[in-house]
Amino acid sequence: MIKIVSMRLFQAILVMVAVTAVAFIMFRFVGDPVAMMVREGASQAEKDALRAALGLDNPMLIQFVEFFGRVLHGDLGTSFRYQQPVAELLMNRLPATLELVLVATVMSLALGIPLGVVCALKPTGFLSRIIQSATLVGISMPTFVTGLLLILIFAVNLRWLPSSGRGELVNLGGWQTGFLTVSGLKSLILPSITLALFQLTLIMRLVRSEMIDVLSSDYIRFAFARGLPRSHIYGRLALRNALMPVVTVTGLQIGQLIAFAIVTETVFQWPGMGLLFTNAVGYPDVPVLAAYLLFVGFLFVMINMVVDILYTFIDPRLRTK
């Protein structure tokens, strides 16, 4: 077990070094920082001085090592646009996105797994046809359409829920949470539904097809032959086998949502990382882009690692080699 974890950790570090290198190269090739920073009409001597001051006259490798060292210390540079440390910018935005994604994921799992099971047990039944068609609509509608529709119904017409922003926030040691106030929770509902809809369909369909496979397996037939209660066979014996791929997909989807919830965040004016990133692309704010790249890389590496470790918990066959 420890061996598997340490092995995965080692691989994760390798990937992170590679991602850092890409972020570094981005700095080098997306425009010359000196040209952006000096005043217009500066002399060559002034430029050289600035170059030396920034350490840009050193050999490539040394520059990379220095960059890597700064990243390790959490120094991601200063945003061209906001003139603030990038790390600080990210930390301001991160809680918004994480809370949104967390709620959306819990929602899609809590609904998607039972719906998938229902559809698998009676694949041709009336109920499962309804569920399947309804979720098909959900998956084929673009996120911004769903978001706008929800705003139109619940915010504009019914006036039940806010249409934008995060509501009142509570500061927990630098983490701005919306979980502790009524308006914060209310503001979460519409964007998280919008975000969860696609994932819900995906998980529902995955659970359904996996469950149908598992139900035709010998060990489930054997469970029926032993006269075990249906609830036990479906809910425990079959479902656990069917959930294996769901773990992988959910992991990847969480990463996907955190990194690219841009559309939903734009529709709901959600002050998350997505908005920061879209603005940075337009500007071009290279330190923010590079930091974003690092962050997304880190996120996926971590998620993959957690998924692999979860796998060894679920499947005993992976534990003993």
Binding site: S217, D218, Y219, R221, F222, A223, F224, A225, R226, G227, L228, L237, R240, N241, I314, D315, P316, R317
Partner: peptide, 22 residues
Amino acid sequence: VPGRDVGAIFQDPMTSLNPLFT
């Protein structure tokens, strides 16, 4: 009741036991 009054033995022992349970 199947299981209580009729026991079953299947063909392939590799697949008739659930891999995730002891």
